[in-house]
């Protein structure tokens, strides 16, 4: 056995020492390795910053802290395997359910308004009779450049009746404005901040895909006697449907992850709890209650739900939006 095993190696060695063959072999090996070498940075980054944190979160989500007796002193606390306890507790937690319902309401208000306005602005900018198009486009897009925490602080000032210029003017005119920070209006107040920041981004996405439409189509439509509105409704919107679907998907994901706006507004009023949105609940468990295990489980649930909703949404609209491509 040993002899037969060494024999080819020897043969190989002699072969590789001969002229001609070695360069070819080395070249081939190099060529085979090149893609892997080029992929290495990507793979390493993926493993370190993507796979490892997800794995760590998964590990945490199956653990919990256990204490015995008073829990004081050395060795009174330990980390134990929890099975699905954290998941069961998260899913049956009325606070979690309530936060999901709140966010769904918020999305139902926000997404149609945001996409509606974005589409309207994109179509207006794209219409032939637009004046000051560049200025308007920048003006509508600019709020997107303002970080959500800053915009929430700005809007917070405008909402607080004691310091709001709107309330000041309304008072002078003898009109009693309701405070947007009241519990029944707070969802609108938060949606308004997100709307202000998000319309510009979605508009740019739609506007860019409108610009990619060949002009001949419009000319043909014009020759056939189509008005601007007819062109918009019958030609432009169907053509850019895929980008509308994409912005809708982004908006849905952003809605499920709403965090900065309600967190910033919370100290200003009594109407927001520290578990208003699912991510706020995760933050509270991890950093206020020092329970990273529950927070990890809730994070995994939110991620899976986001995935499921995105998949379902694409499944439903795919036929409509992308049907023409097939």
């Amino acid at each position: 056995m040993a002899a037969t095993a060494t024999a080819p190696t020897k043969a190989e060695k002699t072969a590789s020492a001969g002229p001609g063959t070695p360069r070819k072999a080395r070249n081939f090996r190099q060529r085979a390795m090149t893609p892997y070498a080029m992929l290495t940075p990507g793979i390493v980054l993926f493993l370190v910053f993507m796979a490892a944190p997800i794995a760590y979160t998964l590990v945490l989500s199956f653990q919990q802290k256990k204490v015995s007796g008073l829990g004081l002193g050395k060795g009174a606390q330990s980390t134990v395997f929890a099975g699905f306890d954290n998941y069961i507790r998260s899913l049956t937690d009325p606070e979690f359910t309530a936060s999901v319902l709140r966010v769904l309401t918020y999305g139902a208000i926000l997404i149609p308004l945001m996409l509606g306005f974005a589409l309207l602005f994109a179509l207006l900018l794209d219409s032939r009779r637009t004046r000051a198009g560049n200025f308007s486009r920048t003006a509508i897009f600019l709020p997107y450049a303002v970080p959500a925490v800053i915009s929430s602080l700005l809007w917070g000032f405008l909402y607080l009746p004691g310091v709001s210029p709107f309330h000041f003017v309304a008072d002078r005119l003898g009109i009693a404005l309701p405070s947007l920070l009241n519990p029944d209006l707070i969802t609108f107040a938060i949606a308004n901040i997100a709307l202000w920041g998000g319309v510009g981004f979605n508009m740019i996405v739609m506007y860019t895909s409108l610009k990619a439409v060949p002009q001949e189509i419009y000319e043909a439509a014009k020759l056939d006697g189509a008005s601007e509105i007819q062109t918009a409704l019958r030609i432009k919107i169907p053509i850019i449907a895929p980008s509308v679907v994409m912005t809708a998907l982004f908006s849905m994901i952003a809605t499920l992850q709403v965090f900065a706006e309600p967190t910033t507004l919370r100290p200003l009023a009594n109407s927001l709890s520290t578990s208003w949105s699912p991510l706020m609940l995760v933050y509270r468990d991890a950093f206020t209650r020092n329970d990273i295990y529950s927070a990890a489980a809730t994070s995994i649930i939110i991620a899976l739900a986001t995935f499921a909703i995105s998949f379902l949404f694409l499944r439903i609209v795919q036929k409509r939006a992308f049907g023409q491509e097939n």
Partner: peptide
């Protein structure tokens, strides 16, 4: 996007 959400929480 979905895994990004999990990752962000983990990060």
């Amino acid at each position: 996007r979905a895994s990004a959400a999990a990752m962000m929480a983990a990060a």
